[in-house]
Amino acid sequence: MKKHFIENDFLKITVKETGAELCSILNKENNKEYIWQANPEIWGSHAPNLFPVIGVLKEGKYHFETNEYEIPKHGFIRHNENIRLKERSENQLVFELLYSEETLKMYPFKFDFRIAFTLNKKSLEVNHHIINLDNKPIYFSLGGHPAFNIQLFENEKIEDYHIEFDQKMDLDTYVLNNDGLVSSNTKKVLKNESSIRLTKEIFNSDALIFKNIKSKVVDLVSEKNGKILSIEYRDFKNLGVWAKPGAPYVCVEPWLGISDIEGTDQNLKNKEGIIKLSAEKEFDANYTISIV
């Protein structure tokens, strides 16, 4: 499997060409690995890129104009072997996927998907750049799914970690039904608070899903060893937080879009959170991971 890396005095970043998936953030100062190493017995991914849908579609299908299409969960960027390294410099890797006959069968739009990983001291900026190559508007969602190691240090347990937002909030999570669709039911997570403690049971009902979240910066914090890293996601309206229950990682997922809601009419144009990009226009969305 082909991998590419960039490094500076502080960090070494590695990205798999397949899926343009970030698979390592190595802190050269303490030799700690911050990205989950995809143990297939628990969860076999590192940091999938989500496009042109997030989560699941109702019945795995959607409608556009008079036709019906199927797209797998989280879209077709993750695991995609047709993505190629487009540009490389000392501090940046840029990957690209152009539309093809294969993608047009699932997604009837001509597009150029690019994702850039830019290293600046102890921060990594992840930039999504979408170009509409079609003569009509295109409709899409996009997001990140990076998984960060917890229990980085000896004698730590999951309960020693929490995620800390940059402000106090009332925060409700939207509950998923048995098909992975977003229901109208919510559950209180924070009440004028700023931190969520991780536990072995916190994700027993799947991801925490926060729509239109006010906070745009969240820290991963160890009670014993302090702040580990920070994720800034000012270009993203929604946030998912997830892990396999009891696993030694946590995914912090900036999203533009969301899984289908229970009452969806399955029309792509009406999908909640969908982005409409006019012909020949371009779109950017960034998030940044900063290591302490």
Rank of each mutant, 00 (worst) to 15 (best):
residue 143 G to M: 05
residue 143 G to V: 06
residue 143 G to I: 05
residue 145 H to M: 10
residue 145 H to V: 11
residue 146 P to Y: 00
residue 147 A to N: 12
residue 148 F to S: 04
residue 150 I to W: 02
residue 150 I to K: 01
residue 153 F to G: 00
residue 154 E to N: 14
residue 154 E to C: 06
residue 155 N to T: 06
residue 155 N to P: 10
residue 157 K to Q: 13
residue 157 K to C: 14
residue 159 E to H: 05
residue 160 D to C: 00
residue 161 Y to A: 06
residue 162 H to Q: 12
residue 162 H to C: 11
residue 163 I to A: 11
residue 164 E to N: 10
residue 166 D to I: 01
residue 166 D to R: 05
residue 167 Q to S: 12
residue 169 M to L: 07
residue 169 M to S: 11
residue 170 D to F: 08
residue 170 D to A: 05
residue 171 L to T: 03
residue 175 V to M: 14
residue 175 V to F: 08
residue 178 N to P: 04
residue 179 D to K: 15
residue 182 V to C: 10
residue 182 V to F: 02
residue 183 S to V: 05
residue 184 S to H: 12
residue 184 S to K: 15
residue 186 T to L: 13
residue 190 L to R: 03
residue 191 K to I: 08
residue 193 E to R: 07
residue 193 E to A: 15
residue 193 E to D: 12
residue 194 S to E: 07
residue 194 S to N: 14
residue 194 S to W: 00
residue 196 I to W: 10
residue 197 R to W: 01
residue 198 L to I: 11
residue 199 T to Q: 08
residue 199 T to I: 10
residue 200 K to C: 01
residue 200 K to N: 15
residue 201 E to Y: 13
residue 202 I to T: 03
residue 203 F to K: 01
residue 207 A to K: 07
residue 209 I to P: 02
residue 209 I to K: 11
residue 210 F to M: 05
residue 210 F to K: 06
residue 210 F to I: 05
residue 211 K to H: 11
residue 212 N to M: 09
residue 214 K to E: 14
residue 215 S to V: 10
residue 216 K to W: 11
residue 217 V to D: 10
residue 217 V to Q: 14
residue 218 V to I: 15
residue 220 L to G: 00
residue 221 V to H: 03
residue 226 G to K: 03
residue 226 G to E: 06
residue 227 K to G: 02
residue 229 L to A: 04
residue 229 L to E: 00
residue 230 S to N: 12
residue 232 E to T: 08
residue 234 R to F: 12
residue 236 F to M: 04
residue 239 L to E: 00
residue 239 L to M: 09
residue 240 G to A: 13
residue 242 W to V: 12
residue 244 K to V: 15
residue 245 P to E: 06
residue 246 G to Y: 03
residue 248 P to N: 14
residue 249 Y to D: 06
residue 250 V to Q: 02
residue 250 V to D: 04
residue 250 V to C: 03
residue 252 V to F: 11
residue 252 V to M: 15
residue 252 V to H: 06
residue 253 E to I: 11
residue 253 E to G: 08
residue 253 E to F: 13
residue 255 W to M: 00
residue 255 W to Y: 06
residue 255 W to F: 04
residue 256 L to I: 15
residue 258 I to N: 01
residue 260 D to M: 05
residue 263 G to S: 13
residue 266 Q to V: 09
residue 268 L to I: 15
residue 269 K to F: 09
residue 270 N to T: 13
residue 271 K to F: 06
residue 272 E to A: 14
residue 272 E to F: 15
residue 272 E to C: 11
residue 274 I to S: 09
